[in-house]
Simulated scan of single mutants.
Amino acid sequence: MDILIVVAVALIDGEGRLLVQQRPVGKSMAGLWEFPGGKLETGETPELALVRELKEELGIDTETACLAPATFASDRLGDRHLLLLLYVCRKWRGIPRALEGGALKWVRPIELHGLDMPPADRPLVGLLEALL
């Protein structure tokens, strides 16, 4: 079975809120809320992929040293298997903007329970709530 490795980040602001983004129209699972991130490219480490994705998707800069591994999720995704690696980040430069469409919003961890999220993201909610 083919394994798809995806990295995501829980960006946490000074008030303890997390940034979530809505998947844009035209992408699979459009309209669902997720943690920012994306697929690894050939030769990338998960941390470097996340630094790149944050720049491309949100227009913010961070360092690999600012990414703390938090947890992972594993889920079947069609004919592939998804391995989602979640990091926590509290330090970045710039103001997050939705550069690839979809909306952004800052939410308290408890508010994640009320959002429509992809199946792989849902198990991460309880852990983030406990951590924060």
Rank of each mutant, 00 (worst) to 15 (best):
L19G: 02
V9T: 01
P36S: 02
L50H: 05
L32G: 07
A130S: 08
A70D: 07
L127M: 08
G102N: 11
H81T: 07
I95C: 01
S28A: 12
R93G: 00
L132F: 14
G16H: 09
E15V: 11
E57R: 06
P69E: 05
L131H: 04
T45L: 15
D79S: 13
E57H: 06
E129R: 14
E41T: 02
W106P: 02
K105M: 05
D75T: 10
L40W: 04
V25S: 10
F72W: 12
R80E: 15
P96V: 04
I5D: 08
E129G: 08
M29K: 03
I95M: 09
P119K: 15
L77G: 04
P109S: 08
L77R: 14
P36W: 01
L32V: 09
I60K: 01
T42G: 14
L18R: 02
E129Y: 07
P109N: 04
I110K: 10
V9E: 00
V51H: 05
L50N: 03
W92F: 08
P46V: 10
G26S: 12
L77Q: 14
D13A: 11
Q21A: 05
M29A: 15
A68W: 12
V7D: 00
K91T: 15
K27V: 07
K27M: 13
L131D: 02
V7H: 02
L83V: 08
W92A: 02
L99P: 00
L131F: 09
L99T: 06
A10P: 01
F35K: 03
A68K: 15
R76C: 14
P123T: 07
P109E: 08
T45G: 14
K39T: 12
L11F: 13
R52P: 02
G43K: 11
E34Y: 13
M117C: 09
V6M: 05
E100P: 07
A8N: 13
E47V: 11
A98S: 10
K27P: 01
G16T: 13
K105F: 05
V20K: 01
I5G: 01
L132A: 11
G126V: 10
E34D: 11
L48C: 09
L32C: 14
A73Y: 04
L99F: 00
P109L: 09
A10F: 01
C89G: 06
L18W: 06
L124W: 03
R17E: 05
G37I: 01
A68V: 15
K55L: 14
I5A: 04
E63C: 14
E41F: 10
E129T: 12
G14S: 15
G101P: 03
L131C: 09
D79A: 13
T45H: 08
A30T: 12
L84V: 03
I5M: 04
R17I: 04
L40V: 10
L83D: 01
L124Y: 01
L112V: 10
P109G: 07
R97T: 06
M1W: 13
W33R: 00
G101S: 09
E57G: 04
E34A: 15
K55R: 15
G14N: 15
D116R: 09
K39V: 12
L50F: 04
G37Y: 07
K39R: 15
A103T: 15
E34P: 00
A73T: 04
G126Q: 04
Q22T: 07
G78M: 08
D116H: 02
L48M: 15
G101Y: 11
A98K: 00
V6F: 06
L50R: 00
